[in-house]
Nucleic acid binder design. Sequence first.
DNA 1: AAACTACATTATAATAATTCTAAACTATTG
DNA 2: CAATAGTTTAGAATTATTATAATGTAGTTT
Lengths: 142, 142
Amino acid sequence: MPKNCNFIEKLREVGLRPTKQRIKMCELLYSREKTFHFTINDLVKMISEQMNEKISLATVYNTVHAFEKKGYLKEISIDSHKSYFDTNTSAHHHFFDEDTHELIDCEESDIDKINIRKNITGKKINSVEVLVRIASDNQNQK
Amino acid sequence: MPKNCNFIEKLREVGLRPTKQRIKMCELLYSREKTFHFTINDLVKMISEQMNEKISLATVYNTVHAFEKKGYLKEISIDSHKSYFDTNTSAHHHFFDEDTHELIDCEESDIDKINIRKNITGKKINSVEVLVRIASDNQNQK
DNA sequence: AAACTACATTATAATAATTCTAAACTATTG
DNA sequence: CAATAGTTTAGAATTATTATAATGTAGTTT
């Protein structure tokens, strides 16, 4: 398993011990072609399905937050009822489908660079992100 | 109290009975010059301080959500740990101060109109909102 | 203005998401 | 391969929110 070695190194870099639970999480999170969005619940389900042993909720919370703190995951607040995480940690924009509660990444090219005219003294801009809320367009179909 | 009459009318329009708790909430929310942001907790505290009688948490939740459903308040999700509401219900942009967790409205003129190049078939755009995260700029001061 | 009725308010219980805790376990180091 | 420092775990605690059911009250009817 050469891939796991990468995950072990990755965990070490971050200062976390490469336990089998964490390696499994890395596999699920970082071996996909495309980045994706998930909730803690999604992730627990995915892990439980793929491991013979169970994993504790607390472990998933702890590890996800450890990754987040180190910049390997990004939290996205959109829906006050759900916390989404994103394996794409760069600042980027989103579409949020209000029908399905699905989160969709915007490509760089989808939205022009945003120019902020206001300056707040003593403060620097950390990020600028756009959220485009979409919903099905039934009204106009008739 | 001519102002309260307006609140009574407002509540009636929305289909809510003008009880003293709700009138108090309206006073706090809608008699300011400027719109503002608050959490449910902030609001409960404000009400408790200004009324001799107590108000129940459940009443505040119910009424805030009733206002929100009718478009008299807007929920803003930024911080997964806190739910902010905004008395400015139009689509508008925000600064979020990551040091103080303070939410600041953007003026229309602060940000250019945003052009979305991507079209998602069968979906219409409900809103486009920008969140600018800011923090103190200590690094560059030295 | 008394009485009625539908809706509100309240305290409390229930639920859900998250964090804490302390005991058992395991990866690393020497 | 034993010591130890960090990890996992189940379950308890905490926090935010919603549901419930008894009591209260605004608005209408008489």
